[in-house]
Nucleic acid binder design. Structure first.
Lengths: 331, 331
DNA sequence: CAGAAGACCGATCATATGCTCAATAACAGA
DNA sequence: TCTGTTATTGAGCATATGATCGGTCTTCTG
């Protein structure tokens, strides 16, 4: 696997553009026009496998998008059940791929649809986002838009302890996609000390973020378990000792860095006092959409639902089923 | 080819629902999940060809949709050029399928995207529509929505002379798709006599339609040539003598039944005095979107652009190219 | 300018998909 | 219940697609 395919050639930009253009055209003819790759090859005067590569490129680069428009009965039922039981503004449930229970692609598409619908509006709007792989994937699924009147605001820092940016930073990419104004949070998830956090948060940038957050129309956040294999640890956002402190304090999950217990109560733990993210507040006028699914996320989601840490949920069928089937199960 | 597969069995509804559900699931796993049909067959406990059929069904019934999200340079250029030259609010140009120059599927998708964006809004809205194959196909491409607050209004009657409804009626289907209130026009395109038209238009229903039209946010209309093979003739909306009268009077095209000449001026012809549709009025506050493309529509589109009969255009690359290349060519 | 590295391309092959057909199952009418 | 009719199914086959491999061409470096 080549490591940096784009950076080697200086004239890559124009080349790439042309290539993507061709890819889009080929994919259009293939999926929308319903032609075969051979026919497209003839029309575009390319070899068949060149067309095959273009189509594959268009799919992998998501120049072409697939959307399901049919209410699958069991998903609809699960969604309605969860929405009603937990007083959610909405709940979207996508089919699961039984062969890949951890896959987030369906959830990402569903989240993208919601985000898209929201951001398509021309009225200036502020949208807050957390971080994480699922949200990042959702942003990749978005159509490009041109909405410089919108603002996208980060609820949580994307820097790991070392100072390097997380590849799962969402604000910047979202800002790119919709050409909106971007407000990243220049902070790690956890500061070293409580004093550091206070110093950080008294900065001007944080005041701005807080003000924007208060006017936001919606927040889209991920959710994660707290544990030894959890992404928040393996991505270097929390140290081993943070994790063990949280586990001892009874943490089952976190949202934007804030750890909570099985009842969905934010923990009164020293670790939580070093969280640099904006506080978890769920005012009714702002939609707080939790996006996530997979077996590891069932317990955190259960807790977050009990603690009313969200006003909407986007998940997959298997997770929704688990949430509906044993809602009271505390582990 | 079986003629009426659905009507034979009384229990079709539930069967069909189940089948569509399965089809949606299979298509989801196939396109979004990226699994092979064999894998899906195993997971769903079906034979491989059963899955193949489900996927094909989902595609043909448009349970699964393909959208291109990439500005193909040449299309973008054509669109910008047309929009600027004719003062259009917007112009969308989709790639053409060189092997099927008359195909409207791309145009239909593009129109669906615009319609979708408009109708997704929750603020009550009135949208007017004409008729025709292209618009009908566009409506088929729409996602289902639930917007009972919207009203969809017909600008033109869908009855042919014989009294039977056209299969290309758009309002009813659009109303179904978005669960909006529907206002069809209970009239033919052309009445028998001028007196008939006046009688029709003095009816209460017409007053309502006119009032709704005046408050409409947008109109989506088709366009057609006037000639011996034109759909408006072969579908029985106009008689042979109507057509010859119009041709003699210099008609090159029609929009919602109103014939116009090469300069885009509505004809002062006896035939036009029998048109039951609402008048062609293009007030700036209401978007009037013409949707159509193909070789036969170049001349009508040219005329309509000259006569400023539209405020926006959705067409395909080949047509756009023809419009840009020889804009002044009168035939 | 030579050499090396890497991207790109087309040929070939394995696999996946879609179509046809014959058998079977479901069904309506008698 | 029987029977003719029609939808549905799976097998087999033709076609389309996707992956691999080796060669070529470009481009960067010494």
């Amino acid at each position: 696997m080549p490591s940096s395919p784009g950076s080697s050639s200086p004239s890559t930009d124009r080349q790439t553009d042309k290539r993507r253009d061709d890819a889009a055209r080929a994919a259009w003819l293939y999926f929308i026009g319903g032609r075969t790759q051979d026919e497209i090859a003839t029309q575009l005067d390319l070899s068949r496998q060149a067309v095959q590569r273009l189509v594959a490129l268009a799919v992998s680069e998501k120049l072409i998008k697939f959307r399901l428009d049919h209410p699958i009965a069991s998903c609809t039922e699960l969604a309605a059940s969860l929405a009603e039981r937990h007083g959610l503004a909405f709940c979207d449930v996508t089919p699961s791929d039984p062969a890949a229970p951890g896959s987030t692609s369906g959830i990402a598409v569903a989240a993208a649809v919601r985000l898209q619908r929201l951001l398509a509006s021309k009225a200036p709007m502020i949208v807050c986002v957390g971080t994480g792989r699922t949200l990042r994937a959702a942003v990749e699924e978005l159509d490009t838009l041109d909405r410089p009147q919108h603002k996208v605001v980060s609820l949580v820092g994307a820097m790991a302890a070392g100072g390097q940016a997380s590849p799962y930073d969402v604000v910047m990419r979202l800002g790119d996609k919709v050409a909106a104004q971007r407000y990243p949070m220049p902070a790690p998830v956890l500061t070293e000390t409580v004093a550091d956090r206070e110093a950080l948060q008294s900065q001007r940038a944080f005041t701005v973020l807080r003000e924007l957050r208060d006017q936001a129309r919606a927040s889209f956040v991920g959710i994660s378990e707290i544990g030894w294999q959890a992404p928040i640890q393996s991505d270097g956002f929390m140290t081993d000792s943070d994790i063990s402190a949280l586990i001892e304090a009874g943490a089952v999950g976190e949202i934007t860095g804030w750890a909570f217990d099985a009842e969905g109560r934010p923990l009164d733990s020293p670790v939580n006092r070093r969280v640099a993210s904006l506080p978890l507040e769920i005012p009714p006028q702002r939609l707080t959409v939790v996006v996530g699914g997979g077996p590891q996320k069932v317990a955190p989601l259960k807790a977050a639902l009990r603690g009313k840490l969200m006003s909407a949920l986007i998940t997959d069928e298997a997770t929704a089923k688990a949430l509906v089937d044993q809602p009271g199960d505390i582990r």
